[in-house]
């Protein structure tokens, strides 16, 4: 077992799950990411966590994004292996009118609160999440604050917000 580059990880995954369903992408700067369809996420994540070649035992971060131009929502997962010392980023994008992504709470417990936050902030619905409630804003809050078209409500429980 040794440290793998993102390219090697992507090739390995393509061999297992099919080359057309796993895609390695990269911007002009920064780190590459593996783009997946939402239904591919649980099997790929499980392989990444449990396969001796990968050993991604830590989910460092999970961020929800709103791609307003494409009318899509997305989630980025940053994985880390404390044993093999390599990292990889995964990305899943879903249409705005059907924002369902399988929850990874079963694999990494830390996903629980991160997913609740992504639900609260951009409105992604994580299927099979044990407790998908708002976390930062109050339960009776309106809208998802990090959507690009978010409009702040004028009053909250009779208190002016502006």
């Amino acid at each position: 077992m040794s440290k793998l580059t993102p390219e090697e990880i992507a090739r390995n995954l393509q061999d297992r799950f099919g080359a057309d369903r796993i895609e390695l992408m990269k911007g002009s700067v920064g780190q590459p990411w593996i783009q997946l369809a939402p239904e591919m996420l649980p099997p790929v994540a499980l392989a990444l966590r449990d396969d001796p070649a990968f050993q991604f035992d830590v989910l460092m971060c999970l961020s929800g994004l709103h791609y307003d131009k494409e009318n899509e929502l997305g989630v980025v997962y940053n994985l880390d292996s404390t044993t093999l010392r390599h990292t990889i980023n995964l990305k899943v994008r879903v249409p705005l009118d059907h924002p369902h992504i399988p929850s990874l709470e079963r694999l990494w417990k830390t996903a629980n609160w991160h997913e609740r936050e992504a639900f609260d902030m951009v409105g992604i619905i994580f299927d099979n999440h044990p407790d998908l409630r708002r976390i930062l804003t109050p339960d009776d809050w309106e809208g998802h604050a990090l959507r690009k078209d978010y409009v702040q409500q004028d009053f909250y429980q009779g208190i002016p917000t502006k």
């Binding site: 911007g27 002009s28 700067v29 920064g30 780190q31 460092m60 971060c61 961020s63 980023n89 990090l146």
Partner: peptide, 30 residues
């Protein structure tokens, strides 16, 4: 330029990470 990255440092409380997504504009995308 456009791109994404996750940078982590050791703060007194633990791993402090910033995930930054840039879309070439002067404002961060996320």
């Amino acid at each position: 330029k456009d791109g994404e990255l996750y940078v982590r440092t050791e703060s007194p409380r633990g791993e402090l990470g910033y995930f930054i997504s840039s879309d070439k504009s002067a404002a961060p995308f996320r």
